[in-house]
Amino acid sequence: MSTIAPKRKRISRYHVRNKFYDFSCAIPALVFFAIFVYYPIVELFRYSLTDWNLMRDTYNYVGLKNYQWLFTSSVGWKRFSSSLTITLLYTIGEVSASCIFGILLALLFNRMSNSFKVMRTLVILPRYVTVSATTLVFLLMYNKEYGLINNVLRAMNLPAVSWLNSQDTALISVIIYSFWRSVGYAMMIYLSAIKGLSQDYFEAAALDGANGVQKFRYITLPLIAPTTLFLAVTSFLAAMKVYQTVEMLTGGGPYESTSVIVYWIYALAFRNYRVDRASAVGCVFFMILLICTILTMNISDRKVNYDA
């Protein structure tokens, strides 16, 4: 590197125009982000200060009224706190389930053979299959009267469960679906991490007479902790944005027990026609995401790669 660096400097200093050409390669992306990311976020904040409902061609600035509604009115605060709680419950449920079972699956599937390779591929497949399609098959299986799961339960003389129709089970049913979809990915990440571990530790532990569980507990687990952190952070931020799964499976119901925050923003804007309030919620949601990201970045203290 050090021998190349001065050379590079000489070439790039060769002409100032070079810098401009380098910069122009980044222009399309920069313009795009300015228009489709940064401008909208400013506009979002502006809308949140108005009383616009999308149907009128005029609107007034009303100051922080929408935020006041969100934080102090009983309807606004109740809906906001409940949808935030639901989002967090969903996120924590999905992330912890995929991390825990991801490790277990990685240990199970950690074998070099062609049949295991095929099986690993099949386990991770759900993550890449269209969500619209797989939620539909889960709708069919979850169906209270005619669904496969309840039919099997009945055949075993167990009481049927109203999966998506009861406030006690709806969120769990949604999490089960997300778990099914995402755990293969967690498994693959853990597998690569485990494969990358040096065998020296394990040989040393074997000499000390450690059994499998001990090896896992005292060697594997601490060594893959960074991977766990990486996985938890990326899937946490992705899960917070959940929308499609909820819309397809429950439509936010029953009794708003699965009404996650993005779903609520959408409903406020397009069902209640309150773009102003929806924008206020959107801004607050953005702040929450931002704080979460900064916090997790500080914890992890390294660049995390965000898989959308």
Partner: peptide, 13 residues
Amino acid sequence: AFGSGASTNMRQS
């Protein structure tokens, strides 16, 4: 009849 799939199930039953 209430919730996801309620209408379909009611008709079918």
